[in-house]
Simulated assay, not measured.
Amino acid sequence: MGKALIIGAGGVSNVVVHKCCQNPEVFEEIMIASRTKSKCDAMKEKLDGGKTIIHTAQVDADDTDALIALIKDFKPEMVINVALPYQDLTIMDACLATGVHYLDTANYEPPEIPKFEYKWQWAYKEHFEKAGLTAILGCGFDPGVTGVFSAYAMKHYFDEIHYIDILDANGGDHGYPFATNFNPEINIREITANGRYWEQGEWIETEPLAIKRVFDFDGIGEKDAYLLYHEELESLALNIKGIKRIRFFMTFSQQYITHLNVLQNVGMTSIEPIAFEGKSIQPLHFLKAVLPDPATLGPRTKGKTNIGCICQGVKDGKPVTYYVYNMCDHEACYKEVGSQAISYTTGVPAMIGAKLLMEGKWKKPGVYNVEEFDPDPFMDELNKQGLPWHENFNPVLLD
């Protein structure tokens, strides 16, 4: 059917590439491009010989002109951005300049300010509309599938959804005293930021990890879940009818929290540059360099993830409670694609969103979050592509 350019060569990209190759009727040709071409070549070597033709290239995703030249040369229908969120805008600029569609898994974030806001990308809406191009934002799991879950619940089971709690649990064990399951820099910035949730038309801010709940997750058991701010709250608060409150919780072990507190107390999580041996460095960049690379955790990680949404609202004037979630096994993911479940649960939805765009099912000019599209074809694809979902109409609720 067409060609896609995949920018990035980390764990999520590895999953996207594998899954594109499993759907060659849509992805006839792909190009993997990254600052480090050897990583792209390693992926190509693993998967060459199938029906999907694979190309590789070196590109600096911070350089819009270089991206434009690459896109003009390869002529893809769309770009799948699984690079760093700092690079979203340069890639969107390149897509506009070359007339190709765009998809990413995380919202733009200025390198110097951990903001986690969509305003910079939403500002592109009119540009993409005028160009007749589609930009799909946040098409990973959270954000991504959590938005699709919410839209599916809204479409089929509610007239209004008043409360949404997003619950993200990782029951995996990689054996390290401390490591992050995705980019350490992004992960730690997210966790050490103030918590926020939407209630009665305004944002309520909390100290980092100040609110904790214990929840019994299917397939994992009881875990401590902490309230964080997560970017899908911003778009869901606008796009889901009737919202009175929406919150996001993620699980962390006490061991993880203890390590994080120590690192924060000694300044290692700071993004403020310091002078060191005649150079200026960010402590967080140094910490990222000494922590295990998330891409290496796959063969070590055992256990499951469980991510989903608990929705409360009304249908025909009657109260409805609905819980929809996915469980994913780290070892099964590694066996299939060579990545652990954190990368898998982000990469599979990115491919699904790209597939629906290429097929014309999720194609309309403008810039959109996933919950603004029809959730049904996406929900069908989750079951086909390795992320089957479960639903429960009588779940235990968080207070």
Score class of each variant (00 low, 15 high):
V59M: 08
E45S: 11
K72D: 06
T56W: 06
N107W: 14
P111E: 12
K46S: 05
C40G: 14
P85N: 15
A69Q: 07
E28R: 10
I54P: 00
A97E: 09
A42H: 14
H101R: 04
F116A: 10
M78F: 09
L47W: 15
P85E: 12
V79S: 05
G49L: 10
W122V: 05
I68V: 14
N107F: 01
T90R: 12
L67Y: 09
Y108Q: 11
S34P: 07
M92V: 07
V100H: 03
V17G: 01
Y108H: 10
Y102I: 14
C40N: 10
A61R: 02
P111G: 03
D41L: 11
Q87P: 00
H18M: 08
V12M: 01
Q22I: 08
V12Y: 00
I71D: 03
Q121N: 07
K37I: 15
L70E: 07
M92E: 04
D48G: 12
A33W: 07
L103Q: 07
A33F: 04
C95W: 03
F74I: 10
A94N: 00
K19G: 00
I53K: 14
V16Q: 00
V26Q: 06
I71S: 03
Y102R: 03
V15C: 06
V26P: 00
V15D: 01
I30Q: 00
I30R: 06
V17E: 03
I32W: 01
E117W: 05
A69D: 14
A61D: 05
V15M: 06
V17N: 00
A123H: 04
P111H: 08
L67E: 08
N14F: 00
V100M: 03
V82L: 02
E28C: 11
W120T: 09
G49W: 08
L96D: 02
I32P: 00
K72I: 10
D104H: 04
M31V: 11
V12P: 01
Y118I: 09
M78T: 04
E109A: 12
G99E: 01
L96G: 11
A66I: 04
M92Q: 09
E45F: 09
I54F: 06
C20H: 10
P111Q: 11
L47D: 12
C20Q: 02
P114I: 09
A94H: 05
Q87W: 03
A123R: 06
K119V: 09
Q121C: 04
A106K: 05
C40I: 13
G99M: 04
A106Q: 10
N81E: 09
T64C: 14
T98G: 07
G11F: 01
D48M: 12
K119F: 06
N107A: 13
D65Y: 06
Q87E: 13
D93G: 13
Q87F: 14
I54Y: 07
M78Y: 04
A97C: 02
K39N: 12
C40A: 15
A83C: 03
G50F: 07
P24D: 04
M92H: 01
F74D: 06
T98L: 08
